[in-house]
Simulated assay, not measured.
Amino acid sequence: MKLPTAWMAETYGSARPGDTVDLQSGLLMLICGDVLRPGLPWMLTRTHRYLATVMAEVRDQRGFARLAALAAAEPASSAADAKISATRIATILACKGGTVADVVVGDCVELVETMRQIQTRGGQKKVDFHLRLRALGVFPEAAPHSIRAFGLADD
């Protein structure tokens, strides 16, 4: 956010303390509204506290409601895992467009491979989103039951 705030300071003579928050909120809306599609490496090197929540509100209420219902049927201890999975799925939507139902196995493979390249940690939590999409019936029956079938989730 340094570049936009520097531009604002140069253009308008100053940047206010709240400008960074406004810029981040605006960027989030542009991404969730499918106006901007950032690359996976960029998305995976930032924190996205509200990405899944805003993506659900702006782009796919039904898809994220199905994910939430799936998570509600699990033990309470997995609530954090469900949130991580929702954020991973929202990251795919941010970069690829569409809705939860539009995610394909190749999107999951690309996400996990990019996570590996930029050394994102997470173990099973890194690939749990694939299992949740499978449980929702997003993938066809012939799709691999695990992302491990691609040899990508070995850490």
Results as ranks from 00 to 15, higher is better:
Arg37Ala: 12
Gly137Met: 07
Val138Arg: 03
Thr114Ile: 05
Gln117Thr: 11
Arg16Ile: 05
Leu36Arg: 06
Gly63Gln: 08
Ile92Thr: 01
Thr114Pro: 05
Thr47Ala: 13
Ala15Gln: 01
Lys125Gln: 14
His145Arg: 14
Ser14Phe: 12
Ser77Gly: 15
Leu3Gln: 08
Ala94Asp: 04
Arg49Ala: 14
Trp42Pro: 01
Ser14Glu: 11
Pro144Tyr: 03
Gly97Ala: 05
Lys83Asp: 11
Thr53Phe: 05
Val21Asn: 07
Pro4Ala: 05
Thr5Ala: 12
Thr20Trp: 08
Met115Leu: 08
Met8Thr: 11
Thr53Tyr: 04
Lys2Pro: 05
Ser77Met: 11
Pro38His: 09
Arg134Thr: 06
Ala68His: 03
Gly98Phe: 08
Ala90Lys: 07
Leu40Arg: 03
Asp22Phe: 13
Ala52Met: 09
His48Asn: 06
Phe139Trp: 04
Leu133Gln: 05
Pro38Thr: 01
Pro38Trp: 03
Leu70Lys: 04
Asp60Trp: 04
Ser14Met: 05
Thr11Gly: 00
Cys32Glu: 01
His130Lys: 00
Ser78Cys: 13
Tyr12Phe: 15
Val105Ile: 09
Trp42Ala: 15
Ile147Pro: 02
Asp107Leu: 10
Arg62Glu: 15
Ala68Trp: 00
Met43Ala: 10
Asp154Lys: 11
Ala101Cys: 03
Ala9Trp: 02
Leu40Met: 13
Ala72Lys: 13
Ala6Leu: 09
Asp154Tyr: 06
Ile147Trp: 01
Leu136Asp: 08
Gly63Ala: 10
Trp42Gln: 13
Gly97Lys: 04
Leu36Val: 10
Ile147Ala: 14
Asp128Pro: 00
Ala73Asn: 10
Trp7Phe: 14
Ile118Asn: 02
Gly18Lys: 10
